[in-house]
Design a protein around this nucleic acid. Structure first.
Lengths: 364, 364
DNA sequence: ATTGTTTTTTGGATTGATCCAAATCTAGAA
DNA sequence: TTCTAGATTTGGATCAATCCAAAAAACAAT
């Protein structure tokens, strides 16, 4: 039996400030001040109170504190696909940043459903969270952001944004990312480059498409194939097969995310073609699995962990200063060249970099 | 400007039960009963109150309610690696099950650090969560479970368990999973089968190892190689190379999880060997990426989404009935045969099953 | 000893709901 | 009409903290 009663408190944990106060021979208010590390309390008193707190096994009741002070030290986080490794990393970043400040977060998975998203946001309001990190579901009504503002609820949009500026936002420069991929392919001599995936419903897609079109015209390329679609592996698999049967077929494709790229690679193999040789493939996100494929996937690293950290920090800033100027934190992505774009020889080697996406990014 | 004042409430959201009561011409208590859908209230009164609630734009204050009722409709969830796709899926399952019951969850990532785990659990106690879903960090002191019991905090262990029965637990039958993999390999004619990865610090590893050893003796195999290690891709990569240089080398390996298996496949390629032909590889978890590899990874599916759902449901049951008999929900895993074990021809095809791990499991 | 500052401490009000025992209002029976 | 059982409704106490203005204590200067 592994535990013994180190602290000698009674059975139930209903020890309150009042009890501590009585035990230490001071008032409720003084104990409260000690708990909040107020400098008003004399050293000597502080010690006495601390001892009583320990002796009685007191547990701070944040609910009660929140009721009076209307600060819950709590945040709501909404993502649209927590099962996607990208969001796993992002949530880890959020968690790390919040943890440092004593905050905790509610997490919900909207599955890109506006209805689920709305329900969760309402629940968060009832829980009086101090703020919300929102990766808006596709087709989110731009008015939602105004509604949150009406609620006086600090809201940081992440990765995608809807509504009109100014709003708080943390994300990555998708436009730049696509340009990096395009530049690389052009430098390798490609002239027929297609873009796979995305709806037009949100900023993250528009930015990518804009980068694609702009790159085409900057390099004077006339071949243009932009295939709209959802962004699953299945889509990549189907789209690439359709595309390769056209005349002429593309010599390279840039994909909305790594999932689409994985699907595209599989599709090429199905056709008996060699990815990176018969058609170059570049993904977006650089999820950990990218380096494991065969061929390893060239991808635009979007640093989810860092985005999570930045978003959380921005939220804390906004909570501390609700009426401050809105901020947009846009990180710069970075192209990670591997085999699937044909630039490197195919050889199975374990990648050198330990955890590439934690530190290597540049705020724009 | 997308929003207009549909509901005509004033600027600030400090509408309380008192205000509703005044507006509807009833008492605070009655309004409270209406909000909680009590059958005590007359139909006619209920309608009147509902109208006032809508008219004034009232927002329920769960914090205040929790203070009096000591029910927060809130759960704490601790995982040790949220960036792992397995946990992404599991969290999605938890979220879905809780959402149906109006619960929300705090999520924290212990990163397998007992210190972080402890801090989070204490914070959850301060927030008065109704219960906790805990995937214990490695080397968690078994006394922790007793401590939580002292706190009278319902705690469901997930995936791993520490301490002595009885305790609440939701997970998968790792022992059976390894046996399935071993049986399959033996049926294919393998006689030299190694096991890669795992520490002895927790149940999930012990169960796997037990399955490995038991299978060996049941099939009368004398070759035995069980390599302890952490469970990253890097480990799989290193271990397989060490193993293949022995005389004789194994003809097949079963891996602690899919990450180790991915590493092993990469390691074999590095040696110029063909996974599935020169050495069969089987993973555990069947993460979505398993089917994408080349060769596609044969893996023991452990149904993370389903485990998450079951764990959450068990938690809700325990909260409703704190002194009921402890339960252990153990799902049966299922071997998904692909190319890496050499049983199927290598051919790139998009897998048929849409989302294999949501429904196909059997409670043991 | 008196006064004026500065440092600590304090009790009462407040936050917004729920709980509970008692009050009030039905409708049917005597 | 009166009584009573059952259905509704209610006000005061309570949950456990924070806020705030004012009191008390400590200290320095006159």
């Amino acid at each position: 039996m592994a535990h013994d009663d180190t602290s000698s408190q009674r059975d139930n944990s209903s020890v309150t400030l009042q009890d501590i106060a009585a035990h230490a021979g001071v008032s409720r208010s003084t104990v409260s001040l000690v708990l909040r590390e107020s400098p008003l309390v004399a050293e000597h008193t502080r010690d006495k109170v601390r001892q009583s707190i320990k002796a009685l096994g007191y547990v701070y009741n944040r609910g009660a504190a929140a009721l009076r002070s209307s600060r819950t030290s709590t945040l709501g986080v909404v993502v649209y696909d927590i099962a996607n490794p990208f969001f796993g990393a992002m949530v880890a970043g959020i968690d790390a940043a919040l943890n440092r400040e004593g905050y905790v977060s509610f997490l919900a998975n909207s599955e890109d459903s506006c209805e689920r998203q709305r329900r969760f946001l309402e629940r968060m309001r009832e829980h009086r969270v101090d703020g919300i990190l929102l990766c808006p579901a596709e087709a989110t009504d731009p008015g939602l952001i105004d509604t949150l503002a009406d609620w006086r609820m600090p809201c940081i949009q992440v990765l995608r944004h809807v509504g009109h500026p100014p709003f708080d936002y943390a994300g990555t420069d998708f436009h730049l990312g696509v340009c990096q991929a395009m530049n690389h392919l052009v430098a390798l001599g490609h002239e027929r480059i297609a873009f796979l995936g995305g709806h037009a419903e949100h900023s993250a897609t528009r930015e990518r498409w804009h980068g694609y079109r702009e790159s085409l015209s900057r390099h004077g390329l006339t071949y243009q194939r932009l295939l709209r679609a959802t962004v699953t592996r299945r889509d990549g698999f189907d789209l690439i097969q359709r595309l390769m049967s056209e005349t002429p077929p593309p010599s390279a494709v840039v994909c909305h995310n790594d999932l689409v790229a994985f699907g595209a690679i599989l599709g090429l193999k199905r056709l008996g073609l060699e990815p990176g040789v018969d058609c170059a493939v570049i993904g977006t996100d650089d999820v950990e699995e990218a380096e494991l494929g065969d061929p390893a996937l060239t991808s635009v690293a979007t640093h989810p962990y860092a985005i999570g950290e930045e978003a959380a920090r921005l939220a804390l800033r906004r909570i501390a200063n609700p009426d401050g100027a809105r901020e947009q934190v846009v990180l710069s992505p970075r192209l990670r060249v591997r085999q699937s774009c044909g630039a490197q020889p195919r050889q199975a080697a374990f990648p050198e970099t330990p955890t590439p996406d934690r530190q290597q990014y540049t705020p724009a």
